[in-house]
Design a protein around this nucleic acid. Sequence first.
DNA 1: GTTGCGATGTATCGGGCCGATACATCGGGG
DNA 2: CCCCGATGTATCGGCCCGATACATCGCAAC
Lengths: 216, 216
Amino acid sequence: MLELAILGLLQETPMHGYELRKELVTKLGTFRAAISYGTLYPTLKRLQTAGWITETESDPSMIPPMTSKRGRVVYKITADGKERFADLLAQAGPETYDDAGFGVHFAFFSRTDRATRLRILEGRRRRIEERREGLRDVLSRAAGRLDAYTLELQRHGLDACEREVRWLEELITNERSGRAPAGSAGTLDIPAAEQPRERAAEDASPETPRPQQDRP
Amino acid sequence: MLELAILGLLQETPMHGYELRKELVTKLGTFRAAISYGTLYPTLKRLQTAGWITETESDPSMIPPMTSKRGRVVYKITADGKERFADLLAQAGPETYDDAGFGVHFAFFSRTDRATRLRILEGRRRRIEERREGLRDVLSRAAGRLDAYTLELQRHGLDACEREVRWLEELITNERSGRAPAGSAGTLDIPAAEQPRERAAEDASPETPRPQQDRP
DNA sequence: GTTGCGATGTATCGGGCCGATACATCGGGG
DNA sequence: CCCCGATGTATCGGCCCGATACATCGCAAC
């Protein structure tokens, strides 16, 4: 799962570990609290061994900090890595439908074809519906056997399931009718910007230095 | 985490692995899909080594199936185990507030004193509020930087957080005013039964054979 | 009747992921 | 000047999961 996420982020731009982690948190933070370094670094090593990414010493652009000294290993995706990413994105196994797996796949939906998007959304819906049915069974059949707190827990879980199914159904409807993911929330007013950022596949240019984010 | 759950269930009645797993699924199913045997059996071994539970060969009561043959190891909690359970129930570390930890603790709230219940509910609320603030930051500050799908994901996550905070607040209010966990759902009509089941601490009697559950 | 299938039941193995921990560097405030 | 917090890389022990491999029982189909 992390493999897919890392490949996806490195496809946008090369990064070093620390940066990568921050991006992971903001893009997938909903499903994973932190993405521990104890996971990240071994995974990076694994991806490197497999040949999906390469390690380039302290890059030349050197935007703001670190004059030049120790490490700061920058990782970059390879051609094989891009292929691997495409494969992982397209194929949907059972692990695609659990919380973490679905979150990662969904986060890259703008780079996924509509057929796959629909397949994943429907698979996820099925998964949640099963969980929902299980909870309904417990609540109707075993109600007397459980204490008030356990029941309240099940009820809350059931509520969350029903809500997520509705959410998925809305997304599926939108997909089928060709619309974008709605964005119905009234608080924000992003004019459906999206900005496809059509970057040419083999783009290895110096990269715009990226608008420095959250640097105070 | 699993340790606490197993100890809690075995405090109600001795069980063998398969049975234990089913109970785990129905009581904690909201937070853990299955509780793999690859986790359960090693954990049981660990608890046994620590002296919290003991292994008793194929019990005499032998309710319906299995005339008598191979295994069916029945596990039983020890006096040390009960002490351990009480300790784990009362103390609340950071791991008490993540999804899994909170679920397990909550499931045993009817055996937890009110002070601890409040401490845990408030800790959990704080945790979710932090996650919520993080999502709000992303949605307001980094909105333009993210694609429509990622935004939708964050929005859905934010919604879930807000909903859970409200749920927790309701529970906290109820705790403070001394009421039971509400049970506001109109579909079920359990008359706040709860049934404290005040079992004497050192109860080692033959146990009522348990009303055979879900055997068709 | 026997054959075979699905539920019950116990157990291990490899691997992903996490929290804790240990380093080292840099910029800035006391 | 010195320490603190952010940045940055890395490892270790341990929990937990999915896959897999067994063996037994009840039952239904053939």
